[in-house]
Design a protein around this nucleic acid. Structure first.
Ligand code: MN
Ligand code: MN
Ligand code: MN
Ligand code: MN
Lengths: 215, 215
DNA sequence: ATAAAAATTTAGACAAAACTAAAAATTAAT
DNA sequence: ATTAATTTTTAGTTTTGTCTAAATTTTTAT
């Protein structure tokens, strides 16, 4: 697989988690910042290679082959992110772009040795699960902070949006994986939350609450 | 720079250490396993970008720009090799190919943090010097084992050929960086050496002796 | 049910990096 | 100094991945 093919497969994978019955051409184009016509061309090629099943106008989904390939790319991406944060002391908002390149390095031995070196981590710095050598992904119960019950204790276990802007905002607010949350009040007008974060009271907008996973 | 351009620049760099007055088209083609006509095309492009100075039929050399770029690629290659051997427990004969890919990852921050993580190593697993952040390469006195004096103690500090075959042969012979050498006798007919390696007597062919650096 | 809007695909073009075959320049040999 | 051999460059294609513009299909709205 070329780097370009791998990027397509990975995007189709991520999109199919949200729309399992078929991924749209435009959605793929949006994620890859390319044009719909380019996507159509690529879908034909990926279909040729039995990585996706594709019928024109009907959307696309991954084949078994494609699914496993996608998981391996995601595995590499997330392991490299762990390496960058844990070993090289990058901040969690700086690693995505670099991992976007590292995920395409070809060696199987490399990724399995990296996995061992890191101590077989189960989650990446953003709380996303890391597929194992066989592509198995540990399922985790989680909900959005916006769905949390009032006056119950939760832990932050992940972010939905892992853009640099959002992560920097969380840094500023001293919110990190492991932070404790207790929702004190929910404003019914705009769903703004009053939350105790690590025992400190904060006002949290609905947009933020919709991008934090808790447990 | 594209990956392809970087590979050309690096090869021109290595070849220009041997032939400083200008690198041949065919030599480049040989190293990159491509055709001379492809090389000519690329040289025009690299010349456009002021990475090489090139006049047709006259060979090519790196500009100041090109030289610095080349050193940065070599720096990345060798630092990644150190990482693979020191941290991931790869053998020294397994790392070249993987580093060939890793050397093209773009981030400056990455490579400088990797350098720090590794403790600012001066040499790679094959004894080759690692350029620093500014591209400065520490000069080291060394000679080939074939040029060594009789009955003097030397240390192995590097290999000239770092092919997997040669390195595996050295493993089998229990020769590694740091091994001590004392040449006992030189057969004048074919330059075969009788050598004490780590106090053990071995017969070493001229071809081998021509690919081991000692000090 | 029909028309308008949106999504998707096709057709044709382009840039990058490679190739083959042929032409041109340089170097080596007589 | 010519000729022959070698090296290098040019000319013309090919493949990959992209683009724009136009055509087609599907979806939505009246
Ligand atoms: Mn990527
Ligand atoms: Mn992540
Ligand atoms: Mn390379
Ligand atoms: Mn090396």
């Amino acid at each position: 697989m070329t780097i370009s093919e791998e990027n397509y497969i990975k995007v189709i994978y991520h999109l199919s988690l949200v729309s399992p019955k078929g991924v749209n051409t435009n959605a793929i184009a949006g994620m890859l910042e390319t044009k719909a016509s380019s996507v159509t061309d690529m879908l034909k090629k990926l279909s040729e290679k039995d990585l996706v099943s594709y019928q024109k106008y009907q959307g696309v989904s991954l084949t078994e082959n494609g699914l496993l390939s996608a998981k391996m790319i995601v595995r590499k991406h997330r392991l490299w992110e762990v390496f960058l944060v844990e070993k090289l002391a990058f901040n969690w908002d700086e690693v995505h772009e670099i991992a976007e390149e590292l995920e395409h390095i070809k060696s199987e031995a490399l990724i399995n040795k990296l996995d061992a070196f890191l101590g077989f981590p189960a989650f990446d710095p953003h709380g996303d699960p890391i597929p194992n050598e066989k592509g198995v992904i540990q399922k985790v119960n989680k909900l959005l902070l916006s769905e949390a019950e009032l006056n119950r204790e939760y832990f932050c276990i992940g972010v939905k949006d892992s853009s640099s802007e959002f992560l920097k905002y969380l840094d500023k607010q001293k919110i990190a994986l492991g932070s404790t949350f207790k929702v004190i009040e929910k404003e019914s007008f705009d769903d703004t939350l009053t939350v105790e974060v690590n025992s400190q009271e904060k006002i949290i907008s609905n947009k933020i609450a919709n991008n934090l996973y808790v447990q």
